[in-house]
């Protein structure tokens, strides 16, 4: 039998449940530690982000109006699908510099995190809702509701765990998200999109872009249709830019400086609450 030809994977973007190439036609050569070019990664553009935002916005209502239980089921399903693709993620994570042991840990924790937030998806609303005592003839209650569309700059130092830790609480809370994957370790993000694709996550709820932070952060933070922005990183200029641009339409700003994403503090229902709006209702009752 003749020698087989290598089949190399094309890493594309994930927008609206589809895998388009960047509209700009640009790419980034991704090299391993030895400097060998391994794959070409899409260099996402401002317009890719715009398209992703349109998808995220149109998916947002449908997702937030699903039952919380159904969102929980879908998140659990993402965990299941990730479990079934261990080998692929092992290969990619080690290629991106992790040891076998570290890679295994990262996959385990990513799955656990998805299952953790799947559990909270239909519980946080009860836990964080409350009845307020008012001295008027009203039944007064407060509950959290999805903010809408979240734009996020994923942590750069982890390929999978950081991405999952940002996405899971956001969508558990009924938001849709556009996330820019790690610039230096982008491989697992697009493979994770394949996991999402087979997990009944409706198209547009999660959109994953690859590309340069420096190029896209301006657009992520200034887009008027973004309701909350998550920034992971320590660059003071970026932090300032995000805060300044967020003021244009008063986006929520959530910053995560460089940190260890394997820490248990990243599993908390309070992370879901970060991308929620508080709604208080005054319901008239008899005097």
């Amino acid at each position: 039998m003749s020698q087989r030809i290598d089949i190399q994977k094309t890493y594309k973007l994930f927008i609206g449940g589809k895998f388009p190439r960047t509209e700009s036609g640009r790419y980034i050569k991704w090299t391993d530690k030895k400097g060998t070019t391994v794959v070409n990664i899409c260099r996402g553009s401002r317009k890719d982000f715009r398209n992703a935002m349109v998808s995220a916005r149109s998916a947002s209502n449908g997702w937030s109006s699903r039952t919380a239980y159904n969102r929980a089921q879908i998140l659990y399903r993402v965990g299941e699908m990730l479990e079934g693709r261990r080998e692929q993620f092992m290969a990619e994570l080690t290629l991106q510099g992790l040891t076998n042991k570290q890679a295994e840990n990262e996959i385990n924790q990513s799955i656990d995190r998805l299952i953790y937030y799947a559990g909270w998806a239909d519980k946080f609303q009860q836990v964080f809702s409350r009845v307020n005592p008012v001295s008027l003839p009203y039944f007064n209650f407060t509950l959290p509701e999805a903010t809408g569309v979240v734009a996020a700059i994923a942590p750069d130092d982890t390929s999978l765990l950081g991405l999952v830790s940002i996405i899971a609480p956001v969508i558990a809370g009924g938001n849709s998200i556009v996330i820019l994957a790690s610039e230096s370790r982008p491989l697992s993000s697009i493979s994770f999109a394949e996991v999402l694709h087979t997990s009944d996550v409706p198209g547009g709820v999660i959109n994953i872009l690859t590309g340069y932070r420096s190029e896209l952060i301006e657009h992520f933070s200034s887009h008027m249709d973004v309701n909350a922005i998550i920034y992971c990183g320590n660059n003071p200029d970026d932090q300032k830019l995000v805060e300044t641009n967020a003021a244009l339409n008063v986006k929520h700003v959530i910053q995560f400086p460089l940190q260890d994403w394997s820490n248990d503090k990243h599993q908390s229902p309070y992370h879901i609450l970060k991308c929620q709006e508080t709604k208080t209702t005054w319901h008239p009752i008899g005097v």
Partner: peptide, 9 residues
């Protein structure tokens, strides 16, 4: 303005 807009406004 240079910024992408939202239907909200």
């Amino acid at each position: 303005t240079g910024q992408y807009q939202s239907k909200d406004y």
